[in-house]
């Protein structure tokens, strides 16, 4: 543990994350900066969580957004119906996503490669279709927080800052956990599974358990994130909570930065969000921002499949100590 904490790569990753988080405190238009940072931090937290499964364990979850949606719904429901405090609701959201991942893990993690990816899509779609029919969660209309709820936190403005600070702290925790996993014995087992699951089992890696825990870990943070995000949003609907597209954008961020590295998803998520922001603002690209992002993704997949950080690590082996 001590040795792990002396790794400069950890501090670099944490410093970059903290810089995103603290930027609104220094910006002139703080509320605007907060919204921008919120988007970036949300993307970083989601991508870094996904990376635990995708990058370290080698399992491609196409429906990972289901954990953000489910956690968001459970937390939202508890806040809306029972007036539960945001912090507790966030934990409940994380817990429910973790439980879903645990149960699913025992079942669908037996599937390999593309079959697992397909199953995760199925799970996300089944969940969305189910929530649409689930009356306690508001069915197809979803739920809207009434304004009174914000009063408990000292008004809407205070509440938004609270959600922001929660997201910033969560993101730092995700980055730290991701680093600890990568440099631990558990993480070594995961990477062995990624490289060759059968060989890993022959060497004694209990793959079914390791995979399940990796899945749970990669689900719990999106669950918490969902509660914070939809609290800030003020309402939640099935079609916003389980957007398959966002899952895939998460994969794109991980790939862009470099899967299987700690720093990669942070940089990938931030870069992707910045790019999206720029494309949306530019009149030239506004309408075809999706197409531009697609071209970018294609170029990465075809020419730098290891992502930016992965490429740097291979190219400049001296950077390996810093680029974890």
């Amino acid at each position: 543990m001590k040795k792990q904490l002396r790794n400069p790569g950890l501090w670099l990753a944490l410093a970059i994350t903290a810089a995103f988080a603290l930027w609104p405190a220094l910006a002139s238009n703080r509320a605007y900066a907060r919204e921008t940072s919120f988007t970036i931090l949300k993307a970083v937290a989601f991508a870094a969580s996904l990376n635990i499964l995708l990058g370290f364990t080698g399992y491609v979850s196409f429906g990972h957004i289901v954990f953000l949606g489910l956690g968001g719904y459970v937390g939202f429901y508890l806040m809306d119906t029972f007036g539960l405090h945001l912090a507790l609701a966030a934990l409940a959201g994380g817990l429910s996503s973790a439980i879903l991942a645990f149960l699913l893990g025992k079942a669908i993690l037996r599937l390999r490669g593309a079959y697992f990816a397909l199953a995760t899509i199925g799970v996300n779609e089944a969940m969305r279709a189910f929530i649409k029919n689930f009356e306690p969660f508001g069915g197809p209309i979803g739920m809207t927080l009434n304004f009174g709820v914000y009063r408990a936190y000292g008004g809407p403005d205070q509440a938004l800052w609270m959600a922001y600070i929660g997201t910033a702290l969560l993101t730092i925790v995700v980055v730290l956990v991701s680093f600890l996993v990568k440099t631990s014995r558990f993480g070594l087992g995961l990477m062995a599974i990624r490289e060759n699951e059968d060989a890993a089992e022959v060497m004694g890696v209990v793959a079914p358990n390791a995979k399940t825990w990796a899945y749970v870990l990669s689900a719990v943070f999106p669950g918490i994130l969902g509660v914070l995000f939809f609290f800030k949003n003020g309402n939640i609907e099935p079609r916003d909570a389980f957007v398959l597209h966002q899952s895939i954008e998460g994969i794109v961020m991980v790939m862009l930065g470099g899967h299987g590295t700690v720093l990669g998803p942070i940089l990938g998520a931030a870069a992707y969000q910045r790019l999206r922001g720029l494309l949306l603002v530019s009149p030239l690209f506004k309408n075809i921002q999706l197409a531009v992002a697609g071209v970018l993704l294609l170029i990465i997949i075809l020419f730098i499949p290891a992502g930016a950080v992965g490429w740097l690590r291979t190219r400049f082996s001296r950077l390996r100590r810093v680029l974890v």
């Binding site: 014995r185 070594l188 087992g189 990477m191 062995a192 990624r194 490289e195 060759n196 059968d198 060989a199 890993a200 022959v202 060497m203 004694g204 890696v205 209990v206 299987g260």
Partner: peptide, 19 residues
């Protein structure tokens, strides 16, 4: 059946960690 992207050292450590 090498774990290709892991280093030689890490490959051997897997054996020792999980044996």
């Amino acid at each position: 059946q090498p774990l290709e992207e892991l280093s030689v050292l890490e490959n051997v450590m897997v054996g020792s960690c999980f044996g």
